[in-house]
Write a protein that binds this DNA or RNA. Structure first.
Length: 749
RNA sequence: GGGUGAUUAGCUCAGCUGGCUAGAGCAUCACAUUGACAUUGUGAAGGUCACAGGUUCAAGUCCUGUAUCACCCACCA
């Protein structure tokens, strides 16, 4: 009978995809209608909010493959009677996009200031939309059966509105506040960074031993050791361990800070490590996170000497002003040496914090930022975890998540960027005034004017809202320049995408079922989605978190563009097809494991895909046109083989429900190849080889074989949707099947 | 320093609540096949399940300790 091509050609995959997409049945509302029309029971909706990839670049292999987990769940659920919503989107990725796009502007010889905030935003938006389009193509290429009619971008006004509502409500409850804290400042990106946006690098540095003379004991001094001499200009104290006998006599006395010529106290604190350096440590609250804590504890003065550009400033000798930190360090060391206050300098290697994007050294500085007190939210999240309302796979990650919640710190939610959701706040009389009044409790606007010499018109009050408020008595409203940390909006993804707590989709599709992503973002994303979800909706945003493995280069190293060892998804699609890639990923990228991408492994899976094609082809070829009606009308007898097949379907279904995709993939391969092909088809060959066309024996054997093939196609479909649908459509052409495999129901389950 | 996990065939890993004569894929070797598929079939080789103790009738599987590795968090004056 009809001649199918000798091997499966993965080029048909795009064609198959458009078949699915055109049907509109990836939209759960349509799917629900379809189920009703076909007389199936409509089960509860199944929702996954897909992790939105960053809209500043093409998708990498990890993204693309990750979606095959979402899709296997989605397809299986759809075939089991659930209207399935796989909700796609794209993330604006604040810092990263701003950095990528600014670099692109640089190549054109422009800066973001040249464009101005509005134009910058507009162009960055276009840039993201272009990338989003590419990303969407890749998502389709892997076979993701998502409802693209609902696709969203994190900066869509619908989402922003919901994010703002959350902000207003949190502010009113006192969870959000402005605070002066030490932050990670990237002097290059000119923004505060969350800890997550920083990395650590081992760099060469110096260890300078500097003598601080005692004020009341001429000739005596305390030597402190520091890797950053320039920060001494901002020192507020020298700290020693209370049990340290070498220094106990000095505690409570004062030393004269060289060069700055300021008197600072000697304090005692348990935190000080007696073994390290000289056992005496200089305390610079303004420029070191630890020192900041120490300073707060001991009520020390905060002396700012480095500005947000990483240059020296503030209450320091004129000659150092405007210097970079390294330059200043050198100059200081030289002067100290001349004064005989430099004991020695050691070369050392130490970890420094750098900006994840541009690798610039992070400058810890004091800054006014917006904070969210996440502690009460974390407590609720922790409770849900403990009660088992959210489960993390692999289980070990659950403990890690609990530990994270138990030790959570206030979250800095403001970023000094242009790209993002601008914090909807207005300051009467200006931001500086507001912060000043906050720091100087009890003082008034008049005090501000007197002490700073700046004239303001306003009350120092805040107004929350997007639109500029009415100006009464000629007061001037200053708009907040900062934008939200990206995680503040992506943390609301599962409900913001469904239209917020009032949305129709929300009512129908929330909470979602499962969150699937790579392990590196569990704290930064999932942890926040749980907190924000509980806060806004009172419900957990998803019941399960499934953490995928990481794709590595074939030598086991991390894939990265800079190393040149990254593999484009496109290459794999072209050479082996999406099904082969998916199949490889199910078995290799298990939770907690690494998956080095080896070509020969994908090849092996491609062979299996081809095997499916050829076994189907064999069965189709053996059915004569004249036998079709007899075969399709014949009742399926529950033979041993059919029963075994049913059992197989149930088993694989269980694996999918338990997120054991590797076992599922292994089973479908084992059953199809080594049971159906190697044994049953071989048997069938012998049974029909001497039979006449249309004979009872032939009809019996072929009917059973075809049925088993179709059942196998169904259970394999969630894993490898393309080849199975391609075969199904061949069957449809011959009147041996109907409709699309994607929407077939697994009735035996 | 804190946390989490890993350690099973050459490689990447399965092995759920203890019953294994320890599996898969890829790689290797031998043989077969122009027959749906050379993108195939049949078979072989390859492992004291990191190490040391313990619990048990029975341990890859549970407990304790040791070692090595990985990731995350904190920090390094």
């Amino acid at each position: 009978m009809e001649q199918l091509s000798k091997s499966y050609n993965s080029n048909v995959e795009t064609e198959i995809y458009s078949l699915w997409f055109k049907s509109g049945l990836t939209n759960p509302d349509n799917m629900e209608e379809y189920l009703k029309e076909e007389g199936y029971e409509v089960k509860t909706p199944f929702t996954i909010a897909l992790p939105p990839p960053n809209a500043n670049a093409n998708l990498h292999l990890g993204h693309v493959c990750g979606y095959s987990f979402h899709d296997v769940m989605g397809r299986y659920m759809r075939m089991s009677g659930h209207p399935v919503l796989l909700l796609p989107g794209k993330d604006h990725a604040g810092i990263q996009t701003e950095s990528v796009f600014t670099k692109q502007l640089e190549k054109e010889g422009k800066t973001k200031e040249d464009l101005g905030r509005k134009e910058f935003y507009k162009q960055a938006y276009e840039f993201c939309m272009k990338n989003a389009e590419n990303a969407r193509e890749q998502e389709k290429r892997i076979g993701l059966s998502a409802d693209f009619s609902r696709e969203l971008f994190t900066l869509d006004s619908k989402l922003t509105k919901i994010v703002y509502e959350t902000f207003y409500s949190m502010f009113e409850e006192g969870l959000i506040y402005r605070d002066k804290r030490i932050i990670n400042q990237c002097p290059n990106c000119m923004t505060a960074l969350a800890d997550i946006d920083t990395e650590h690098e081992l760099k060469r540095g110096i260890f300078a031993y500097i003598k601080y003379p005692l004020v009341d004991n001429p000739g005596e001094y305390i030597t402190v050791a520091t890797t950053r001499p320039e920060t001494m200009l901002g020192d507020a104290a020298v700290a020693v361990h209370p049990d340290d006998e070498r220094y106990s006599k000095y505690v409570g006395k004062k030393v004269l800070l060289p060069i700055a010529e300021r008197e600072i106290p000697v304090i005692a604190d348990e935190e000080v490590d007696m073994e390290l350096g000289t056992g005496a440590v200089k305390v610079t609250p303004a420029h070191s996170p630890v020192d900041f804590e120490l300073g707060q504890k001991h009520g020390l003065e905060v002396v700012n000497v480095i500005n947000e550009k990483g240059l020296m400033e503030g209450d320091i000798p004129e000659r150092f002003k405007g210097m970079g930190t390294v330059e200043c360090s050198k100059a200081l060391v030289k002067e100290l040496d001349e004064k005989g206050l430099l004991e020695k300098i050691e070369n050392t290697e130490h970890e420094v914090t750098v900006c994840e994007r541009c690798r610039t050294n992070i400058e810890p500085i004091i800054s006014n930022q917006w904070y969210l007190n996440v502690k009460p939210l974390a407590e609720k999240a922790l409770k849900e975890l403990k009660e088992g309302n959210i489960k993390v796979y692999p289980r070990g990650q659950q403990k890690a998540l609990m530990h994270f919640y138990e030790n959570i710190q206030p979250w800095c939610i403001s970023r000094q960027l242009w790209w993002g959701q601008r914090i909807p706040v207005w300051y009467s009389g200006g931001k500086k005034l507001y912060d000043w009044l906050l720091e100087n409790e009890g003082k008034t606007v008049q005090d501000f004017e007197k002490e700073t010499g700046v004239k303001v018109s306003g009350t120092g009050e805040l107004y929350l809202g997007e639109e500029e408020p009415e100006s009464t008595n000629g007061e001037v409203w200053e708009k907040e320049e900062d934008v939200f940390d990206t995680w503040f909006s992506s943390g609301q993804w599962p409900f913001s995408t469904l239209g917020g707590p009032q949305g129709d989709d929300f009512k129908k599709y929330y909470p979602t079922q499962v969150m699937i992503h790579a392990r590196d973002i569990i704290f930064w994303w999932s942890a926040r989605m749980i907190m924000m979800g509980l806060y806004r909706t009172g419900q957990v945003p998803f019941k399960d978190i499934f953490v995928t493995g990481m794709i590595l280069a074939d030598d086991g190293s991390k894939m990265s563009k800079s190393r040149g060892n990254s593999v484009e998804p496109k290459e794999i699609f072209e050479r082996y097809g999406a099904d082969a890639l998916r199949l490889w990923y199910y078995s290799d990228a298990l939770p907690g494991s690494n998956a080095p991408l080896r070509e020969e492994k994908i090849k092996g899976n491609r062979n299996f895909v081809n095997k499916i094609w050829n076994a189907s082809r064999f069965i189709i070829m053996n059915i004569d046109k004249s036998e079709i009606s007899q075969i399709s009308e014949r009742e399926i007898k529950k033979t041993e083989k059919v029963a075994k097949t049913e059992k197989h379907l149930l088993k694989v279904g269980k694996y999918i429900e338990k997120y054991q995709f590797n076992l599922g993939a292994e089973s479908i391969r084992e059953f199809f190849w080594h049971q159906l092909c190697d044994i049953w088809i071989e048997e069938a060959k012998k049974q029909i080889q001497n039979e006449d066309i249309g004979s009872e024996k032939r009809i019996e054997v072929l009917t059973e074989l075809l049925h088993i093939l179709k059942e196998n196609l169904k259970i394999m479909h969630p894993f490898i949707p393309f080849v199975t649908e391609a075969v199904w459509q061949e069957l449809v052409n011959l009147n041996l099947a109907e409709g699309m495999l994607m929407t077939q129901q697994m009735m035996s389950l």
